[in-house]
Design a binder for these strands. Structure first.
Lengths: 187, 187
DNA sequence: AAGCGCATGTAAAAGGTTACATGATTAC
DNA sequence: GTAATCATGTAACCTTTTACATGCGCTT
């Protein structure tokens, strides 16, 4: 698969943008999302965290607990916030994966509403195109395809339609209800 | 992410189980599915194909075209068919990804109906569990979560529900209509 | 004549996983 | 006492991507 825009660094930055956490926390959170976007291993997580620290994108606060091992709680520096913000503001590539998009959503509150809306609109175009392709394939080969093909396509189609419905409802909500603007643009 | 059961070798084997094709064809097909499960690059595709050839899981037929460059059309050997069949028959791991499942579907006609049904049932259990987890998270943190979290969760929920609906309709169809049994178990 | 689609391939480099190491605390 | 959870980390290995190389035929 084409290298996702959501490499492990952006993924970490994105999560830390929500709230400071430890490596362990990040691992657990990623596991709860792994169903959709896959998890990650300590072997990639900790080295990435150290690299981000060295580059000054995150900073660490060692919290001593009496009972438990000490936790290293990481948070974004200003530089880190800048990086993640510029990542979220750049237009999505056409080949963006489901993973990319979920991360965009996840960081939704870190980007200006207009960008968020643009991301959703982009995704909608993509999914609609893919759905149309699927439908065409099913029509063209309606006589040939075997059970496996038919099922895989039907599955893809069901997911695509659900996604489109969700995307549209989201767009409607965003335009109707500009919500109390918690997003502040840099002064 | 935890190494998927669908490594490139199984992916190739799965596609070839449908019909013989060239490396180029595989690439193009994978691209049409990339929206859901990600594509692959020539740098991994051709070497994998060569390895499968050496191991005797696939065989190649060089088709000379007058106009175009010659195509190397690969097809499964008996050994290859055996491998892919045993892969499809083994129970899915709990951590199976969306990609794993789509491949299972894609090869649906290469496995006995009972296995297929079992795969779908397994997937249903998994997705339901993930959905329940999501719902719990949303309820527990209904006051706290910010826009990004809320959206990502809502998105996941929408997808999960669509998937569950599709899985159930598939199960219903399979049990109601045992379809003209094109699947033959080894004699 | 330049560029694109077809078609195959390789090598270096990047990235990730697996498996290991460590150690404290809580529950059985 | 022994297993599980919390918590961090490293190194060897493996896979994959990126970037390159090649070459024909058709279209503009």
């Amino acid at each position: 698969m084409p290298k996702s825009v959501v490499n492990i660094r952006n993924f970490i930055l994105g999560l830390l943008a929500q709230q400071p956490m430890s490596g362990y926390d990040i691992k657990r959170l990623s596991e709860s999302l792994s169903w959709l976007i896959g998890g990650l291993s300590y072997g990639s997580l900790y080295p990435a965290l150290h690299a981000l620290l060295q580059e000054g994108l995150v900073e660490v606060d060692v919290v001593q607990n009496e009972d438990r091992p000490p936790r290293k709680v990481y948070s974004l520096t200003n530089k880190g916030k800048q990086v993640i913000k510029s990542w979220g503001s750049q237009p999505i590539k056409k080949e963006a994966s489901l993973k990319d998009f979920v991360m965009c959503l996840f960081m939704g509150s870190n980007l200006p509403l207009s960008s968020l809306e643009e991301h959703i609109r982009q995704r909608k175009l993509q999914v609609r195109q893919h759905r149309d392709t699927l439908v065409q394939m099913m029509e063209r080969e309606s006589n040939i395809v075997d059970l496996g093909h038919r099922m895989a396509m039907g599955y893809g189609l069901a997911i695509a339609n659900a996604e489109l419905a969700w995307l549209e409802s989201m767009l409607a909500e965003l335009s109707k209800d500009p919500l109390p603007m918690e997003v502040k643009e840099g002064s």
